[in-house]
Design a protein around this nucleic acid. Structure first.
Lengths: 129, 129
DNA sequence: ATTTGACCTGGAGCGCACTCCAGGGTGAAT
DNA sequence: ATTCACCCTGGAGTGCGCTCCAGGTCAAAT
């Protein structure tokens, strides 16, 4: 189970955008904001070339963002990668984020049940018309 | 299972904020944006007094917001309440929103599993140190 | 009588996460 | 030779959902 093969020269920014589900603007924005583990290589003409590891990291970024971690916090997390032996700190951030996500999930599930009830209410109401 | 009793005169804005979990500023903002079913009554001196039905509606607003429905869409939904026989339309909005929420939930759950895996990875990594 | 605290309004300001733009470069295709 | 598609940068602009503020009213407490 590999992701779509990535050539040795790396992907262009638009290709990386496509596979990551982000836009090219967002990719450049994330890089500017220091969310990338390493800056992608450049072609001789100065264009970004995303290696497989870059693309994998983009997946991590998407995962963190889509679970609601703010840019600021992601930056803190990424910064730890530059510090030797920071694994326990990174772990702590992930665990705390996981708790956050779980709680969020619980809350949304509760609200979802309320939506279900409201829908049931409308269903019987509309039916009785 | 009633909510905390609400006096006949209604709640002040700060009390309504407390029970709804919103801030007084947000309450006024929602009203300005037309998200309230009816504008709350006013005391003789012009202060808002939230009746039980107002407070219940605030609960609905919180539910919709916390499940990610944009203000704009909530307004559309509320506007339908002013239209006779719009129940099917309201139902449709709720059902479509429910699908949205479910999908969102699925996505976050998937990402949560990825977080779990990353945490496991760190746990073994840190353990082996 | 005045102080206090909660409330009012209209409107400005803010933080976030993008998103867009101008002005320019590069290499392949026609 | 020029057209085209795609890329580059720095920086401005946008939409959202609040949040804050100035300047004022009012009723109860001191």
């Amino acid at each position: 189970m590999t992701t779509t093969a990535i050539p040795a020269e790396g992907l262009t920014i638009s290709a990386a955008a496509e596979v990551s589900g982000l836009t090219v603007d967002t990719l450049r924005y994330y890089e500017k904001e220091g969310l990338t583990l390493h800056k992608p290589e450049r072609s001789t003409s100065g264009q970004r070339r995303y290696a497989e590891s870059d693309v994998r990291w983009l997946g991590t970024l998407v995962m963190l963002r889509r679970t609601g971690m703010p840019i600021r916090d992601i930056r803190r997390f990424v910064d730890l990668y530059r510090i030797e032996g920071s694994e326990p700190d990174r772990l702590a951030i992930l665990e705390s984020h996981r708790e956050h996500v779980r709680e969020q999930l619980r809350e949304v599930q509760t609200h979802l049940e309320a939506i279900d009830r409201k829908i049931d209410f409308y269903n019987t109401k509309v039916m009785n018309k």
